[in-house]
Amino acid sequence: MKAIFLVPKDYKLTGGMYMPINHYVDYFNRNGMIVDEIIELPYHKDNTCKGISERLHSKLSEEKYNIVGFTLNICYMMLRDFQLHKNSNCDCTCFLVDSMSLNMDSVIRNESIGKEYIEHILKFFLYELKEKYCLRNCNKIVYVSSVDKQYVLKRFNRDILGDVFVVPNGIDLPNEVSDKLVRNENDIPTLGTLTGFSQETLNNNLYPFLYSIFPQIIKEFPDIRFVIAGRGASVEVEEKLSHLDNVDYIGEVEDLHDFYDKVDIVVTTVKKDCGLINRVLEAWAYRRLNIGFSKNFAAFEYAENGVHYLSADNEGEFVSAVEYAIKYPDKARIIRDNGYDLVKNKYSWGKSGEVFLDIIENK
């Protein structure tokens, strides 16, 4: 039986979407499930959708297909507009990635009342409506995180038609990684983060760290540096970063080594509760010590605080975590290496592909 992937338009421009889809296409093709076509769809229904729907139903009139939709809007379109789940020759799977209801729920809980707060409440109700529709009309729902699954099972218990599965993202291990971590007791490490620069990311993730947490770390360790990498920063944001003490903005990096070779510790301060944070996987893969909010590691069911990462949920805990890495470099190195071993053994794309293909074929 063949498969068709329905994906967001321009998905190749988004690493967080292109990488998993590309790996799953490769794994499926190598293991007997030929991905016959990858169809890019607009995020919202437009005048191209009718022709795509008709073409899909025409293909289904000739043979059976497994059709997989990726992300909430695409899955909603696949079911609500294309009605593919009602075609007897179609076995539909909704790979929702994150629970967007949980995403917006967690954003709202971290906001003060204002214009954006109202907009996010309206988005929450829209996402909830779409997610409910998918849960009510598709037998196979997939998320990348067990946190999302548990939220959905609790919140939408009466709306679930079939089964809810978890397929975590994998990671490609780099061929070489430098052994950069504070080498002697009391050496000062370099902190760093890879980030986007949307207004939501700035307001919820980056600025709270830069203006509340990092100044407290500087008070204790005046020589410490914080390296920021990522694309999409406006001139205004670049100017703002250039005036912050102990902060080095290096812009977009084409080779990730250009970032990871500059830092000892990767900081993660994402306030959303949903999903699996790829940057955490990546930092482990590049053999860097991970420090971040405890919620940022919740999706990694095999990871333990103090064994694979150091959690910190306020200014004092961040200072303590950095101090631990400085005072006990050998112990910090063990935690870092445990993280590397974790992704090597548990988070390969091959393992994720095997789980996903089994869901498609046998569940």
Rank of each mutant, 00 (worst) to 15 (best):
S53Q: 14
S88G: 05
C94S: 13
R109E: 14
S99F: 07
H57E: 07
S101W: 00
I108K: 00
N73T: 10
E54T: 00
S101Q: 01
T71H: 11
T93V: 11
R109T: 07
T93D: 08
N103Y: 10
T93P: 05
R109W: 07
L96P: 00
K64S: 15
E63G: 01
E54M: 04
L72H: 06
I118V: 14
S61W: 11
S106L: 04
F82W: 09
L60W: 13
M77W: 03
S53C: 11
K59I: 06
H85E: 14
E54Q: 10
Y76V: 02
I113A: 06
C92M: 12
Q83Y: 13
E62V: 10
H85Q: 14
E62W: 07
K64C: 12
E116L: 04
F82Q: 03
K64H: 12
I67Y: 05
S99K: 02
S101I: 00
D81P: 05
E111W: 09
M77S: 10
K86Y: 14
G51V: 00
F70T: 00
I108Y: 00
F70M: 03
D98K: 00
N73A: 05
S99L: 04
N89Y: 02
E116I: 01
S101K: 00
E54W: 03
I118H: 07
T93R: 04
Q83E: 13
Q83A: 09
N89A: 03
C75R: 09
M100H: 10
S61V: 12
